[in-house]
Write a protein that binds this DNA or RNA. Structure first.
Length: 477
DNA sequence: CGTATCCTGAATACTCAGGATACGGTGCCGTATT
């Protein structure tokens, strides 16, 4: 069966979307592949289709339990029964059952943490793996060095799994991050498929306000007037909750979503938003990965993102249906402080590094957070000499902090620039400037009235400029 | 670096100014061996 037939048979599609064919072909030819496809392109098809055409099982590393459950659920709906999520939702008995019969599954989803378990590696190494997939592969670079260090082990694990053909998928990765992914996974040689991250139907607006109160007031006005549904991003859980409450009091169907809430509650809010019972989600960065909602009309940032990648990923949740949408970033003096302090506080301080390695018996007294403790434990392996470990970990710490501050400074530079916002984002991802579009950004000119709830359903909001239309027509085959 | 909260001392006020302090995001996982 060829690709086209398989596509029709298993997914019911007649044709591929941009990028899918190239990625699938590369994988079927047995090449390690890194694919950067814009949000909403149907990345899962890139490994599911080969899964049907190749012999063996597809092993998919996924960052979130909810994502895995969703994917398995979706496969079941498509009629695929041989799919399983190997994670802590399984009881010990279920887990043993699955591990003892891995070859019966065509699609196996797993977390990097679970896949770091030696017993699990051993079981998987006996499996015929047709394809090893890293979904949301930017997590390797973004989380691997500190927050979820098991991501850094994937290169080693890949070898223990006998070097299976590997596909790394992401929607946001700069050239540097892509290099990082390839190096850490030890993919050599590799086919890279990089498609534009631009989303021309999303207008980009940045607005500076004099102080915090003005920013809050602006937010209220925007949420009241803009066409919904929409997402408002905050850096603080508390603020997300307070603003959700404030919006509710104004009669807006809003609610909060963050990592501190009960799993059940998070799921409920997500479902309500998905099915239109909620219009506005006030969320932290916990919200969004794997959210498949096409009609999100606005994404507002009430706090500054830590890096351009996060920003692009978050605004990319708007307008997946291709209809005009808007991304608005609000900031006021002093907004730098929160991201900067979070960067500084994430990793252990120098004295804590010393205390942890030099006086392990006293390490409980130095008040390490969960993340700090795991960071120190992970890098313990660096040297058999304690003093050397301390020296190296201090170095890793300061380099990592400097790197993250550098990333944040890029956000600031973008904010303070006087040129086209879209051009700024694209050049950050090494893309050339796009053709001039209408309703591009605050620098090029954008009329927010177009995005207001009062604007009629059928009103046309121009996106294409005449130059673009002309070029599109000329290029048509 | 800001905001929120709690405490203290002033002055004698059903308070208030100002200092000290804490806090701020993302998620996986049997720390026994099967």
């Amino acid at each position: 069966m060829n690709m086209q037939q398989a596509l029709k048979q298993h997914f019911g599609y007649e044709s591929f979307r941009e990028g899918q064919k190239e990625v699938v072909t590369s994988v079927l030819n047995g090449h390690h592949t890194l694919a950067l496809l814009p949000t909403g392109t149907g990345k899962s098809l890139c490994y599911q289709l080969p899964g049907y055409m190749l012999k063996g099982s597809v092993l998919i590393v996924s960052p979130l339990l909810s994502l895995m459950q969703d994917q398995v659920e979706q496969l079941r709906v498509q009629g695929e029964k041989k799919a399983v999520a190997l994670n802590s939702f399984l009881s010990p008995a279920e887990r043993k059952n699955v591990l003892d019969s891995l070859e019966n599954y065509r699609f196996i989803y797993i977390s990097p943490e679970m896949l770091s378990n030696p017993y699990v590696i051993e079981k998987c190494s006996r499996l015929m793996i047709s394809l090893f997939v890293i979904d949301e592969a930017h997590c390797i670079s973004q989380w691997g060095y500190d927050f979820r260090t098991d991501y850094l082990k994937l290169g080693q694990i890949r070898k223990q799994l006998n070097n299976p053909v590997t596909l790394a998928l992401t929607a946001t990765a700069t050239e540097q991050v892509r290099e990082d992914i390839i190096r850490l996974l030890e993919l050599d040689p590799v086919d890279e498929w990089v498609f534009s991250v631009d989303r021309p139907n999303i207008a980009i607006q940045v607005e500076e306000l004099d102080h915090f109160e003005a920013k809050t007031e602006k937010l209220m006005n925007l949420v009241n007037s803009l066409k919904k549904p929409g997402i408002v991003y905050f850096t603080s859980k508390k603020m997300a909750e307070e603003m959700a409450l404030l919006l509710k009091q104004q009669g807006i169907k809003a609610d909060a979503y963050h990592g501190g809430m009960e799993q059940e509650q998070r799921l409920l809010i997500q479902q309500q938003f998905l099915y239109g019972q909620l219009d506005v989600i006030c969320a932290t960065s916990a919200f969004g990965m794997g959210i498949n909602k096409g009609d999100i009309r606005f994404v507002i940032h009430f706090h500054l993102p830590q890096q351009m990648e996060s920003y692009l990923q978050e605004i990319g949740r708007a307008g997946r249906d291709g209809k005009p949408s808007v991304a608005i970033l609000l900031y006021s003096p002093g907004d730098d402080s929160l991201p900067l302090s979070m960067i500084e506080n994430e990793l252990p301080e120098e004295y804590q590094i010393e205390a942890y390695y030099l006086n392990p018996e006293r390490s409980l007294e130095i008040g390490l957070t969960d993340v700090q403790e795991r960071f120190l434990r992970f890098y313990q392996i660096l040297s058999s000499h304690t003093a050397e470990t301390v020296r190296q970990v201090k170095k890793i710490r300061s380099e990592r902090i400097a790197y993250k501050i550098g990333k944040f400074k890029e956000v600031k530079a973008w904010l303070n620039s006087n040129s086209c916002r879209r051009k700024g984002i694209l050049s950050y991802f090494n893309e050339k400037a796009p053709l001039r579009i209408l309703n591009c950004c605050d620098q090029c000119g954008v009329n927010l009235d177009h995005y207001s709830a009062n604007e009629g359903e059928d009103s046309e909001i121009p996106i294409e400029s005449w130059e673009m239309t002309l070029r599109r027509l000329l290029l048509r085959k």
